[in-house]
Design a protein around this nucleic acid. Sequence first.
DNA 1: CTGTTAGCGCGTTCAT
DNA 2: ATGAACGCGCTAACAG
Lengths: 349, 349
Amino acid sequence: MNQFSAAQRNRVTMLDVARHAGVSKASVSRFIGEDRALLSDAIALRIEQAIATLDYRPNQMARGLKRGRTRLIGMLVADIRNPYSIAVMHGVETACRQHGYSLVVCNTDRDDQQEARHLANLRAYNIEGLIVNTLGHHLEQLLELQQEMPMVLVDRKLDGLQADLVGLDNPAAVRSAIEHLEQQGYRDLLLVSEPHDGTSSRLERHASFQAEIARRPTLHGQWLATGEALVAGLQSFLAAPGHGPKALFCANGVAALAATRALRELGCPLFDDLGLIALDDLDWYPLVGSGISALAQPTEAIGASAFECLLKRLRGDTGPARGVGFAAQLIVRGSTRSLSPPAPGLQPR
Amino acid sequence: MNQFSAAQRNRVTMLDVARHAGVSKASVSRFIGEDRALLSDAIALRIEQAIATLDYRPNQMARGLKRGRTRLIGMLVADIRNPYSIAVMHGVETACRQHGYSLVVCNTDRDDQQEARHLANLRAYNIEGLIVNTLGHHLEQLLELQQEMPMVLVDRKLDGLQADLVGLDNPAAVRSAIEHLEQQGYRDLLLVSEPHDGTSSRLERHASFQAEIARRPTLHGQWLATGEALVAGLQSFLAAPGHGPKALFCANGVAALAATRALRELGCPLFDDLGLIALDDLDWYPLVGSGISALAQPTEAIGASAFECLLKRLRGDTGPARGVGFAAQLIVRGSTRSLSPPAPGLQPR
DNA sequence: CTGTTAGCGCGTTCAT
DNA sequence: ATGAACGCGCTAACAG
């Protein structure tokens, strides 16, 4: 082998500490664990010193093996390059750390095979709970896993899987977007989103969009998916006579990127008379054209909430599956002020 | 406890498989491991079937405990919300998976305390190797860890830590940026970067910038850090008489974001006569003004290369520390074409 | 309060 | 080619 396998074996173990302190392994174990109260001060002190001088670190693998508790949480992410996923993951990780858990993140790259392999792996590592933010094909595997550990879904619910769900309150978010567009004077709206692919949040946003349009007689609405046909679709939307001032509603950050790209390709000025509002607030929104208005998701809170759901379940809560829907925050920039004359002396940011 | 602790104990174990197949645990172990060749076909088949019908999954914790090999790689990341880190991490993860390893990512949020806690944790989980992309305070901890496992640095080297380094060839990248700016007719350059904070890559880029300027009599160069003074600094740079056409060189994506923001605040048109080129290529660069020219880093390759370095060491390579420097790819957009008249019929993208 | 004992699930000598 | 027995590092019974 190499120089490291030796080092691996030379690591200081509980027995070393016990011998150094002149006590039994059990006492050291009690000191490490929750039972520290059951130790005499004298022994506790000796153990503490032994640990310090030897720089002892309990082996989590061994602890996990014995107790069935690994202090490991798994997270399945569909696309780690999506800023939303990153932000949520950051929230989860922070919460994990605060409660002594570590997070193992598995990126599936939207690939079903990788999802399967990751699920198998996570099980092999005895994680205690799972946070899922994927399309969740492989339902059987997920259901099996759910027998063994609590599970919470983020952003997207999965058919046939009854579990806690944490995400945005999509109907409310869409309503405030439409409301804002209507107030700003836009009448002809186009929803741009990624192909639904059975993603519940995308479907919900689409349905809510249609419902809001139906409820408001002054508004008209259409739908367009990102992909090959996006540029052409946008072009015909822009060219059509229409029912009044036009605006896009991008259902998430990826759609916003694609739509803005397409608008530039078409030579459409950003945003002189076309309005645009996007779900998710990315750091570059202020920089494009006169700035892109956004509905920001409280991603940090969503992540933290997902972990807390898990923690409750780990602590024994067996109540029915819950759902947590967070509110989005409206951030107005230039892209939805094209119809109102700019306030004097104020630069759009 | 709850409903899950029972499930935890009911998981099918190697003994279950052995009994079901009518063989000993040892044979099952051989089947699982590399020694499958030493088994008779008959027994191998029975074991295979038993594993399939029972849906047996070896417990990685126990394997790790016994063999000292956990198949776990750790990665320490300074800021998980930095797109560069994400991209590299994605490359690392892909490479890990291809070789049967799993990746545990630890985000330090640029916080030294968190770095320390993460390092302790990673050790406790018996990871086999570590990829480091932080400022690496806590040098002693890192040095100790290096006794136990191989380590490879990404993007930034650490004083006093001798380890493989994978990253960009900074001098070459800076040279091609300066060269490009010079060719396009810019003469008065401003380097914008985050405060150095001892980050080797930032220092290298700064030094290379100064060297390139010194080497070219037609060029003049200054330096500005992001932060409070950025807007004011930019303003005076723009207002000064100068030595010819002006351009910014942003040393990474974060600096590009900050600089562009500041330019907007100053009401500077993007990019009518001011040039700009940025290291890192972010997906929104094409959308800002006439598009931001970039030097793209091969992040996927950097990540993969980092893992492969680790793997070599794990396989026993004890050669001296190596360094791998990748080349950046120049991507020209509108922000460095402000001085050349646009080709007729071509839209800047 | 403390030490002894017996496993957790697995890999690895030894025998055979 | 296969099985029995031991131990990885630790926790949880049980004694005392």
